[in-house]
Simulated scan of single mutants.
Amino acid sequence: MTPCLPLIAVSALVTGLVGVPQPWVVTMSAVSGPPAPGRPAPAHPTPGPAASGPGSAVPAVPVGPVGPASDVVEHVATTALDSYWTPERMARAIPIDVLSTIKQVGMAAARILPSTASPAPSRSPEAAPAGARPVRQARQARRPGASLAVTSGSKWAAGGAVTRTTGRVFLTMDGVDFVCSASAVRSANKDVVVTAGHCVKDGAGSWAENWTFVPGYRAGQRPYGAYTARRMFVAGPWARGGNDDYDMGMVAVTTANGRHLGDAVGGQEIGFNARRGLRTYGFGFPADPPYNGEHLLYCAGVVHADPQGQTRDQGLRCDLTAGASGGPWLSGFDPATGRGRLTSVSSFKYSNDHRTMYGPYFGAAARDLFQSAQRA
């Protein structure tokens, strides 16, 4: 059995469980059916298309107290040991999307998932399970700064701040090592990382352990160090029931080599209540075939409402695969500088539409999370 077969076996089992594509959400953290009757509406209403302006950025200065209506769930993290994330363990970590597979197949997963002693799984295109829908290979932009405005998946070659602020997250959930994507943002404490909620907490389940952010990751390198979690924040609706409208997480990290994250790499601006339908760039480190998680990739286009009406999220044409979860969505993005305003993160795809990535709308709930995280 080749090193990649355990993942193939897991994927095959999930295919048997899920069956033909259905018009319900397959999140990057859980396989779920249609919303249950009487599903409660999100606690924070989402502004409609009439909202104006590109969104309100939050300056890197202290903000007022979180109001009584805020619904933030906090967790004090156990600092990951520097010795835990060895290059070999990082290479073996799998996209957190497979977490749903573990839950679906139960004990069978324990027999087929790679152990910590296994060699690194292959991520080549040939490793895709038989019958799986092929994912198009990434397309390289012709030249930096040109033809970057629309793509469903390309390597980012234009440089700029986004190459420093975007990174990979390595974490352990229920004893299995996983990978996600994330971004550093400007904050009062210079320590805030924004990612998907399922990259921090498994809905109503476990909190992540050994959570570590590596900004500027490239081919196994840690050019700016590694920053471990000290406090984690998710929205209440996510923590209580995995509500996809709130699949967002923010983490206050420790210093590395005596430096705050913001001092080492800077940070993207974060915005809330942005006008819907903006041109957006989504970044991440997809790790399932045909990608291997070693390079920063991106999608770009105009976001749109969820046509299936299951969420208040917005969709972006995007072929990026598992591992891109939690990667930043930047509106008002300038390819020349690599800076924009973070208004969402990669969250899920529908089982019958593998070419569209969805991300939660950053409104009042995201603002409350950020206020809590930048004061931590």
Rank of each mutant, 00 (worst) to 15 (best):
G159Y: 05
A256R: 13
A264C: 11
L7V: 07
R92M: 10
S124F: 11
P6S: 02
V58K: 11
R259N: 07
G284V: 10
R355F: 12
G282T: 04
T79H: 09
H44D: 15
A43I: 08
E88K: 15
T79F: 04
G33R: 02
P289S: 08
R259A: 07
T2I: 14
P223Q: 05
Y298I: 00
F362A: 07
G309L: 05
W329M: 13
S118N: 14
S122K: 13
A226V: 06
V72S: 08
R279C: 08
Q308R: 15
S52A: 13
F348S: 03
G106V: 00
Q22H: 11
V66M: 09
S29L: 13
P125N: 09
Y361A: 05
V234I: 08
Y298V: 00
N210G: 07
R259G: 02
L296N: 02
A43K: 07
W238K: 09
M173L: 14
P6V: 01
F362W: 03
V162K: 05
T356L: 05
V234F: 08
V61C: 03
P335T: 03
Y84P: 04
L297M: 09
S100L: 02
C199G: 05
G315I: 04
W207S: 03
A117D: 14
S56G: 15
A93D: 06
T255W: 01
G301L: 00
A366K: 02
E209T: 07
R341K: 15
G38M: 01
H295V: 14
R186Y: 04
V303Q: 09
P34Y: 13
D353L: 03
D245M: 07
P114D: 06
T356G: 06
W207E: 04
T78N: 10
Y361H: 07
Q140G: 08
S351K: 11
G53R: 05
G340R: 08
R317E: 12
R275N: 02
R240N: 12
V253L: 06
A108C: 01
R312I: 10
L17E: 13
R133A: 14
A161F: 06
A80S: 15
S372T: 10
P54N: 11
H354W: 12
V179F: 10
V135E: 09
R133M: 14
V31T: 11
R231D: 09
R276E: 07
R142C: 08
C318Q: 03
T228N: 10
A9R: 14
N243R: 12
T356N: 10
E126K: 13
G220L: 08
T86K: 03
A141L: 14
D202F: 05
